[in-house]
Structure formats: structure tokens, C-alpha cells
Design a protein around this nucleic acid. Structure first.
Lengths: 186, 186
DNA sequence: CCATACCTACCAAGTAGTAGGCAGGCAATA
DNA sequence: TATTGCCTGCCTACTACTTGGTAGGTATGG
């Protein structure tokens, strides 16, 4: 892996574990094994790092959702896979979604970063809305009301469930919060 | 208001706006109008401040839920009031629940603080479970499945909805995420 | 030859926290 | 009543350390 990617990976893990304000270039330096000053060669300011982090995260995440859409047959299975993405990304309750972490400290970010977070939410909602629409049509998700509203609730549940599981460190809390929706998959 | 309370109020607002790691004793000093060093007289370390903050927050919040339980007649109206507490506490999308903010950076807190956060979640769940149980019995909330699972989903929705609304700065996003549940109130 | 990627050695500003002093209130005591 | 002494709450002045960031140099490979 090239150094820049290694820095991004390390920064993403730290941001998702502790929050963006709670890690420093010194931490990255230790993790990646280059001097602190050298990091500025790849990311001149920490704001630059934040921007690249959130953009990369959104792109990767949306690529995963696209892959799910092609891989899984029914909308119900797609929804189950959506929850699984978050679940495995949480590493057993040790971290949360980058956008969850960034949302809290949104006021310390540049507009560009905030826009990426909102775009993440918007694209997630659009994907989920499609899923609920198909799930309703084909019957692979039970009790579907308005797909748009279902999508909004589902995104909120997924993000909130992460917070609760992060606090307790127990993935069973994530499962518990998601169950009411997951049970509707046929 | 006495100085200690003023410090707690200011710290709570800053923590909920930016996160606990993103404000300093210097910020409190400016807001409250005493010297930075004097803050250590009230809170020897920032960890002490975190502990008092989260304890006070949990107690205040639970007192509000008790008040709702006594004030509102039906379980449905109690649930509506629950969402309203969060809504008005968000100050138009400028901040989130303290425990939402703290959950992200849980790894930088002492066990005592983490325990308070989990207790907040546990007590919220217990309260919500009672509400869904009564709502099911009296018919003031429609389509109630297992009250415990409903409660877990509802807490997750409330917390997740805050994150999304915080990122966009629009309270309509909170309303949108909560709607699927709120619509079930009869 | 020159760009890339790294280095050492800094810097100014900000971080939590400490040491020690001082003013005023309050309460026990002479 | 006057005096003593302690406690609370704040102050100035400081420390040790970390923060993001800069300046300028060097090695290496196309």
C-alpha cells in the first residue's frame, strides 16, 4: 500500500474510533511510520485530510451499495446486506461510520466537508428508497408505507444503532435496534 | 446563577455543538468570565467536568421523561412529547443530545462517564418500553409489535435523526426520520 | 535534471494543569 | 465585641507538553 493510502486508512480508523478532533498528525506518524512533518507533503493541512477522507469514504460506501444492488436478488436481501455493511464496518463496536463521527463535529469542518456528509445522507436515502419501493412491489419487505419515509427512518435507525452499540461496545445493541425493520424482510 | 452551574451550562452547550474534545477551558473562561485557572477550582480536571456534565444531563433528562409521564394522558401523547424534547433541545439543528456527542468519543472517557451514557440509554429504553406497552394496550399507538424491540428502534431513530439534522442544519430532516413512528400515534 | 517523497529542525499558539497569593465571609473563641 | 483562623472563590504567573504547520535540506528513481 502506498503511503498516502496508509495515511488515509489510519486517519479513517482513528476518526471513527475517537472523532476527528481527537487524533493528531503525531498519531498518524506513529501508525504509518513516517515523520510528522512528512504527512504535510501528502495533506498540507488537516482540513485537506478531512476533505479527502470524507470524499473517499462516501465513494467507497456508495460503490458497496451499488455492488449490493447487483449482487442481491430481492430488495429484502439488499436491505439485510445494507445492515451487514454497517455491522462489519463497526469492528465489534469499536468504531462508527465516518459520517456519524463527522456529523457531531460538523461545525469545525469546511463547507466542502459538510457537503460531502450531506451528500452521503442523500445518496443513502435515494438507495434505500429504491430498495423499499422494490420491496413493497415484490413483497420482499413487509408493511412498507411511503418508501421515502421508510428510507429516512431506516437511515436514522442505522446511524442511531451505531451510537448505542458504540457506547456499550456490544454489537447485540445494534442488532436489537435494527430488528424491528430487519424482521420485516421476507 | 452560580459560577459552577454557569460553567456546566456553557460546557454542555459547547460539547453538544462541537464535541467534548473540541472545546477548551479557554473557551469556558471567555464564556463565563472567570480566568482559565479558576475553572480548575470547580473542576480539577477536564475528566471531572465530563463526569459532572453527563451525570447532570442524564438526571435532568430522566426528570423530564418522568414529568411527561405524569403530564400527558395517553402513551401516544407521551411518545410525541418525547420527540419534542429532543427537537427543542437541538436548537434548530445547532446541537445534539450530549450522549450522542459523547458516544462517538467514548474511548477518550473514563469508565464512569461511559457507564453514565449506557445508563442514559438503558433508562430511556425502559421508559420507551413502558410507553409502547401502554400504547399497545390502550390503542394510542398503532401497530405495536414487541414493546422492547419497538423501544430500541425508537431510541435509535431519535439519536440517528439528530445526527442527520445536525449535518444538514435542518430540523425537517429530524421530523422526516421520526415520521414513520410519529404517524402511528392515534 | 528534476520531481517525488521523505527527513531534521524549527515555530507560534494552544492544551490541561500547578503554585501560590489574596480578598471576603463565616464561625468559634477570648 | 473584637480577634483569630479557616474556607471559598477567584486571581496572576507559570510549567510541561501537544497542536498544526513551515523552512530548507537530502536521497532516489525516471
Amino acid at each position: 500500500m502506498d503511503t498516502k493510502t496508509a495515511l488515509l486508512e489510519s486517519a479513517e480508523r482513528l476518526a471513527r474510533q475517537r472523532g476527528f478532533d481527537a487524533f493528531s498528525y503525531a498519531d498518524l506518524s506513529r501508525n504509518v511510520g513516517i515523520r510528522k512533518a512528512s504527512i504535510h507533503h501528502h495533506f498540507p493541512t488537516k482540513a485537506d485530510l478531512a476533505a479527502e477522507l470524507v470524499t473517499r469514504y462516501r465513494e467507497t460506501f456508495m460503490a458497496e451499495l451499488s455492488a449490493i444492488e447487483q449482487r442481491e436478488r430481492t430488495a429484502g436481501q439488499q436491505l439485510a446486506a445494507y445492515f451487514d455493511v454497517y455491522k462489519s464496518a463497526m469492528r465489534g463496536g469499536a468504531q462508527v461510520c465516518l459520517c456519524v463521527s463527522f456529523s457531531v463535529s460538523v461545525s469545525s469542518f469546511a463547507p466542502l466537508v459538510v457537503r460531502q456528509i450531506n451528500r452521503f445522507h442523500a445518496e443513502s436515502l435515494a438507495w434505500l428508497e429504491r430498495v423499499f419501493e422494490r420491496g413493497k412491489a415484490e413483497g420482499s419487505i413487509a408493511l412498507v408505507g411511503d418508501p421515502s419515509e421508510e428510507a429516512q427512518a431506516c437511515l436514522a435507525v442505522a446511524e442511531g444503532a451505531q451510537l448505542i452499540a458504540r457506547a456499550s461496545g456490544q454489537m447485540s445493541d445494534f442488532d436489537g435496534a435494527v430488528r424491528v425493520i430487519a424482521q420485516r424482510i421476507r
